[in-house]
Amino acid sequence: MTIHFLNAVLDGYKVVNKITYADKEILGPMKSDRSAIVDILCNSDQDDQFIIELQRVKQKFFKDRGYFM
């Protein structure tokens, strides 16, 4: 299901055929301090390798850190 989602988002720019999760969750002392950061290691149909990072954390300068193709 994740592969289908990534391929829909990438819209033909790359075609993901294999993924591996690299969990980087950071547990804080309070629920409001907790965040989740997950790296998805992707392999494409053209033997490219790339990482997509997903985050669930408040960021003051999110737009500045975003990357657009």
Rank of each mutant, 00 (worst) to 15 (best):
H4F: 03
Y21M: 09
V57H: 12
V15R: 11
A8L: 08
I37E: 14
K63M: 04
D23G: 02
Q49M: 05
Y13R: 15
I51L: 12
E25Y: 08
V16C: 00
K14R: 15
S44C: 09
L27Q: 08
I19G: 03
L54C: 04
I51V: 12
L10D: 00
T20V: 03
G12R: 09
V57M: 08
R56T: 01
R65K: 10
V16A: 02
L10N: 10
K14C: 03
H4A: 12
D23M: 12
D33F: 04
L54S: 06
P29G: 05
T2M: 11
I40L: 14
I3T: 09
F61A: 09
K60A: 10
S32M: 11
I26A: 05
R34A: 01
T2D: 04
P29M: 08
I19R: 10
I26Y: 08
Q55C: 02
D33N: 14
N43S: 07
F5V: 07
F5N: 05
K24Y: 01
H4I: 03
K24S: 04
L54M: 12
F62L: 13
V16I: 06
Q46N: 14
D47M: 14
T2R: 14
E25H: 15
G12Q: 01
I51G: 00
R56W: 02
I37V: 15
D39K: 09
N17Y: 03
L27A: 05
L54G: 03
V9E: 04
T20F: 08
V15Y: 02
D23H: 14
M30C: 09
K14V: 00
K31H: 01
D47H: 14
N17K: 15
G12K: 08
A8R: 14
A36R: 15
N17R: 15
C42P: 12
K63S: 09
T2K: 14
D64W: 13
K58N: 06
D11N: 15
E53G: 03
K60S: 07
A22C: 04
T2F: 14
I19Q: 05
L10Q: 05
A22G: 00
G66D: 01
E25K: 15
F50S: 07
M30R: 12
P29I: 06
K63H: 07
E53D: 02
Y67F: 13
R65P: 00
V16H: 04
F62E: 07
Y13K: 12
